[in-house]
């Protein structure tokens, strides 16, 4: 999905908080999202993402892995973000669908995923559509 010029301008203001502990995956996906004109904040784990948000950092959408090192996983991060920052759309990605209850997230992205698919899910949500209805 390639945004047209007007959408592209609007997207440049949209901010994605990418939470992923696999550094190569994080860096390459961040590149793809930036290539789609999005601003991307890279967090290496849930603690970093939470520190960023609690410090006043902005995000329109959070794309988070589940299993990560640190004091909390992606599910606990999702719970906190939903409670304190309800305006942030949430995409959870995992190789295991078990911990995510439908409706608790705006989209679930099963691993492994293609970067094209991930960018498409993010763009649809940023554009106002909810990927899982």
């Amino acid at each position: 999905m390639v945004p047209d010029r007007d959408e592209d301008l609007a997207l440049s203001d949209a901010c994605v908080l990418l939470v992923e502990d696999e550094v190569v995956v994080r860096a390459l996906l961040a590149d793809e999202l930036r290539a789609a004109s999005l601003t991307v904040i890279e967090a290496a784990n849930a603690d970093e993402a939470w520190a960023y948000l609690k410090s006043g950092g902005v995000a329109d959408l959070m794309l988070s892995d589940v299993r990560m090192p640190g004091s909390m996983d992606g599910i606990e991060l999702r719970r906190r973000v939903r409670a304190e920052f309800p305006g942030i759309k949430i995409v959870i990605t995992s190789g295991n669908v078990g911990p995510v209850i439908p409706g608790e997230v705006d989209a679930f992205l099963p691993k492994p995923y293609s970067f094209t698919k991930a960018v498409d899910v993010v763009l649809r949500l940023i554009g106002g559509e909810t990927a899982n209805g």
């Binding site: 550094v23 860096a27 961040a30 890279e42 290496a44 784990n45």
Partner: peptide
């Protein structure tokens, strides 16, 4: 971006 030396080496 790397959060630590291990991530930097991997990249």
């Amino acid at each position: 971006e790397a959060a630590n030396v291990t991530e930097a080496r991997q990249l």
